[in-house]
């Protein structure tokens, strides 16, 4: 069974009286453990697609099956539950909470789930921070970290609850190419170690090279889908 199955997915934005079709019939399946990139020109619908998969927005038509369950009929509260327990997000602009330390930012995601004791939580967060190479910066605030370090914290935050799927919309767009590669290395490492499914978008060819599956979209449609092993 695939982790995600999209069939005939469409999204039309309403901009005043004008209808803007962003996705026009996407069919695709993502298996558990895949490391996939979605690429394509600006405005092609990458963000829109990730938002649909990430249960952040509702489609206009078509169906999304996540882990065997259709999410089409879920209300906002139920969608939030799905995100809280099953999904991790990495954003282009990191979106760390500035008043919290790296440690606390990571802990934030796991506290929402609330099934660990304080001690367990601490150990888990610390070991993950070490894993992303920030063991000695756990008590720094975001403004005391570089862009690459911030994105590492964000990756740790996405992974801490051991989600089924991590979505990253242009995670390296704000980073220089060397740091971008380091971040991608880290994501790939995590993918292999934890078998977490990753989907990230980019329009940087260098970044795409890391993916094992490349899905190109153009004008809201899949124009290419290739696997590399």
């Amino acid at each position: 069974m695939s982790l995600i199955k999209l069939t005939g997915l469409e999204k039309i934005y309403q901009q005043g009286k004008i209808e803007v079709p962003a996705l026009r019939g996407i069919d695709m399946e993502i298996e558990s453990g895949e490391f996939t990139t979605i690429f394509g020109p600006s405005g092609s619908g990458k963000t829109t697609l990730l938002n649909m998969i990430g249960c952040l927005d509702k489609s206009t038509a078509g169906e999304i099956i996540f882990d065997g369950h259709s999410i089409n009929d879920l209300d906002n509260k139920e969608l939030a539950e799905v995100r809280r327990y099953n999904l991790g997000f990495v954003f282009q602009s990191y979106n760390l909470i500035p008043v919290l330390t790296a440690f606390e930012n990571v802990e934030f995601a796991i506290r929402l789930i609330d099934k660990h004791s304080k001690k367990e939580r601490k150990d888990k967060v610390m070991s993950l921070l070490e894993e992303v190479g920030l063991g000695d910066m756990a008590h720094r605030r975001p403004n005391e970290l570089s862009g690459g370090q911030k994105q590492r914290v964000a990756i740790a935050r996405a992974l801490i609850k051991e989600p089924k799927l991590v979505l990253a919309d242009e995670p390296t767009a704000n980073l220089d190419s060397e740091t971008s590669q380091e971040v991608l290395e880290l994501m790939k490492e995590m993918n292999e170690e934890l078998n977490t499914t990753f989907i990230f978008s980019t329009h940087d060819p260098q970044v795409m090279d890391y993916a094992r599956r490349l899905i190109e979209i153009k004008d809201g449609k899949i124009s290419k889908d290739q696997r590399r092993d």
Partner: peptide, 14 residues
């Protein structure tokens, strides 16, 4: 606003 979006993505309810 961005931060609210992030929290919402992380699963915070309204």
């Amino acid at each position: 606003t961005q931060e609210i979006g992030m929290m919402s993505a992380l699963g915070l309810k309204s």
